[in-house]
Simulated scan of single mutants.
Amino acid sequence: MNFLKNMATLFALLAVTACSSTPVKQAAPEPSSGSNVTMCTMDIKQCPSGKSVGRSGPQCQFVCD
């Protein structure tokens, strides 16, 4: 019984180690050479109406409706 408990613990440790040490990489899509891609920072502004908006558009402006 003790042997099975030790094996289960060892298996669990190996599984956790394998999952936590495996890097997950997701590549960002490369823009084509002729396109104008604008990437805005992920700031948030609270509008007077109470609505929260992020930056958008080619000038990365906050747009409150």
Rank of each mutant, 00 (worst) to 15 (best):
L4A: 14
V16G: 02
F11I: 11
T17D: 02
Q46W: 01
S20Y: 04
L4H: 11
S56W: 01
S32F: 14
V37E: 13
A12Y: 00
I44G: 03
V63I: 15
C40Y: 00
S35D: 11
C40E: 01
K45Q: 12
Q26A: 14
C60E: 04
T9S: 09
L13H: 03
F62C: 01
L13Y: 08
L4I: 13
V53D: 00
N36H: 12
A27E: 13
V16P: 03
M1A: 09
Q59Y: 08
V63E: 10
A15H: 02
L14A: 11
F11P: 01
S32L: 15
L4W: 10
T17A: 15
K45T: 09
T17G: 08
S49I: 05
S20M: 09
M42Y: 12
S21L: 10
S49H: 07
A28V: 06
P31C: 11
V53F: 00
V37F: 12
R55L: 08
P23G: 04
F3E: 10
C64Q: 10
P29R: 01
T22C: 01
R55I: 01
N6H: 06
C40T: 00
Q26D: 09
A27F: 12
M7L: 15
K45A: 12
C64T: 10
V16N: 03
V53C: 02
K25F: 09
N6P: 01
N36L: 13
M7C: 11
E30M: 09
Q61T: 06
A8E: 07
A27S: 12
A28M: 09
V37Y: 12
G50A: 04
Q59N: 13
P48K: 04
Q46K: 12
E30T: 10
P58R: 05
L4P: 01
S35E: 15
G54E: 05
A12K: 04
N2A: 09
R55M: 05
K51E: 15
N36G: 06
D43Q: 13
A28Y: 11
V24H: 06
C47Y: 07
V37L: 15
E30N: 08
T22G: 00
R55N: 01
S21E: 06
T9Y: 04
T22I: 05
V53Y: 01
V53T: 00
T17C: 13
S21N: 11
V24L: 11
L14T: 06
M39D: 05
V37D: 11
S33M: 04
P31L: 09
F3I: 13
